[in-house]
């Protein structure tokens, strides 16, 4: 399907995301994220983290039952690449068959400002969300969370590294 033909449908999806995107439920914040504030004297800067592989979120090509879960974007763009669509359709079919809550984590490369990149990461996540909703996925299953440039998959300041960082991960 050409992206051009998607446009009116995307507009619908944007509208529908207006309708679902207004939740402001109070925090159910568990402190599972390992937060320590400065009153805790135990922190002397010594690393006590466990060893869990490379640590940085996501490898460049995660697999989920053989289907790609990471989708890449062009610089400063939030349009889906044609090569992403087949795998996204399979995700959609699975979510229709077996509904489950899914996080769509949007990322940007390091160029440009951090908060602007948060917005760019969200646009990318929303592009995936809108596509999945168009395929029939229940919008309430999908949450877009942008990490901007804060969680790069690759740390170098090179074009090849940047291209790995402009992505949406389905989790």
């Amino acid at each position: 399907m050409k992206l051009e033909t998607l446009k009116p449908l995307l507009a619908c999806a944007i509208l529908s995301s207006f309708l679902v995107g207004c939740s402001s439920t109070p925090s159910s914040s568990s402190n599972g994220a390992g937060v320590g504030s400065s009153t805790i004297p135990a922190d002397n800067g010594v690393s006590t983290g466990s060893i869990d592989g490379d640590g940085i979120s996501g490898s460049d090509l995660d697999v989920d039952g053989g289907i790609e879960t990471v989708f890449y974007f062009d610089f400063d763009k939030s349009t889906l690449k044609p090569e992403s669509l087949a795998a996204l359709r399979i995700h959609a079919q699975r979510l229709i068959a077996n509904p489950a809550n899914v996080r769509l984590e949007g990322h940007a490369d390091e160029r440009g400002t951090r908060e602007y990149n948060m917005a760019l990461g969200e646009r990318r996540g929303s592009a995936v969300q809108e596509f999945l909703v168009l395929q029939g996925v229940d919008p309430s299953l999908l949450e877009v969370i942008s990490y901007g440039e804060e969680r790069p998959a690759s740390l170098d300041s090179t074009e090849s590294s940047w291209s790995l960082n402009r992505r949406v991960e389905i989790k």
Binding site: A33, G34, V35, G36, S38, D43, E115, E150
Partner: peptide, 13 residues
């Protein structure tokens, strides 16, 4: 230098 907050998740802005 003093620590205000430490987290395994990003802190920004």
């Amino acid at each position: 230098e003093r620590l205000m907050l430490k987290s395994k998740e990003p802190i920004m802005s």
